[in-house]
Simulated scan of single mutants.
Amino acid sequence: MAFNNLLNLGKNKQNQTEAFLALEINEDYVKAAVWMVQEGQIKVIKTSEIVAIENENIESLLQSVDMAIATACQDVSFNPEKTIFGIMHDWVDQEGIVPDKKEILKYLSQKLELKPIGYVILEEALVTYLQKQQSTPPTAILIRFSQSELLLTLVELGNIVLQEKVGRSEDLVSDVNEGLKRFADADPLPSRIILYNCNTNFEEIKQRLLAFDWEKDLPFLHTPKIESLEMKQSIKAVAIAGGSEVAKSMGFAIEEEKPVEQTNEPAEEVKTQEQLPEGFVVGQQLDLEKEETKAEELESLIVTTQNEAVISSKQPNKTGIMLAKFKAFLSK
Rank of each mutant, 00 (worst) to 15 (best):
K216M: 07
D213Y: 05
Q315E: 15
R144K: 13
A68Y: 09
I25S: 05
K181G: 00
K102F: 03
G242E: 09
T153F: 13
E113K: 04
S234W: 04
E291P: 06
P224T: 00
E296W: 14
T47C: 14
S234F: 04
D287Y: 12
V260H: 03
Q63S: 12
L108S: 09
P259S: 06
W35N: 02
L122A: 10
E123Y: 07
V270L: 11
P116C: 07
D185E: 07
F280S: 10
E256N: 12
P137A: 02
S300I: 08
E123A: 08
V166G: 00
L130F: 06
P316D: 03
E178C: 03
L112V: 06
I321V: 15
K290R: 11
K13H: 10
L7S: 13
E204Q: 13
G118D: 06
K327T: 13
Q133I: 09
K294D: 08
T153G: 15
S148C: 09
A267T: 08
E164T: 03
T304S: 14
I254V: 15
G167A: 09
P137V: 01
S244K: 07
A184G: 02
V176D: 00
E227L: 14
F3V: 08
N159S: 10
I143G: 00
E297W: 15
A184I: 01
G283R: 02
L7K: 11
S48N: 08
A140Q: 10
K216Q: 12
I254Y: 11
V270S: 15
C198G: 13
T223S: 00
V155L: 03
S64H: 06
A68T: 05
K115D: 11
Q14V: 14
V120I: 15
E274L: 12
V260W: 02
M250P: 01
G179H: 00
K225Y: 07
F78T: 01
N197C: 13
V98L: 07
S228G: 03
P137G: 02
M322H: 15
A253V: 13
L209D: 00
N55R: 11
A237S: 09
E245M: 05
K115A: 13
I42D: 03
I97Q: 01
P266S: 09
L210Q: 06
L151Y: 01
T128N: 14
E245Q: 10
L301F: 15
K232T: 07
T71E: 05
I25F: 07
P137I: 00
A324T: 09
K216E: 11
G283E: 06
E291K: 08
L114D: 10
E257G: 04
K165I: 02
C73A: 01
K290Q: 08
L7G: 11
R144Q: 11
F329I: 09
Y119A: 07
N177S: 01
K165A: 04
A70H: 04
T272P: 08
E56V: 06
E39F: 04
Y196K: 00
Y129P: 01
S64V: 10
S312T: 10
V65C: 07
D100N: 13
S109L: 08
G279R: 08
L61N: 05
F280W: 14
I193R: 00
P259Y: 04
A267N: 10
L288I: 12
V176I: 05
N15C: 11
K290E: 12
S249V: 14
K31F: 14
R208D: 06
L162Y: 01
T272V: 12
D93S: 03
D175I: 04
I194G: 05
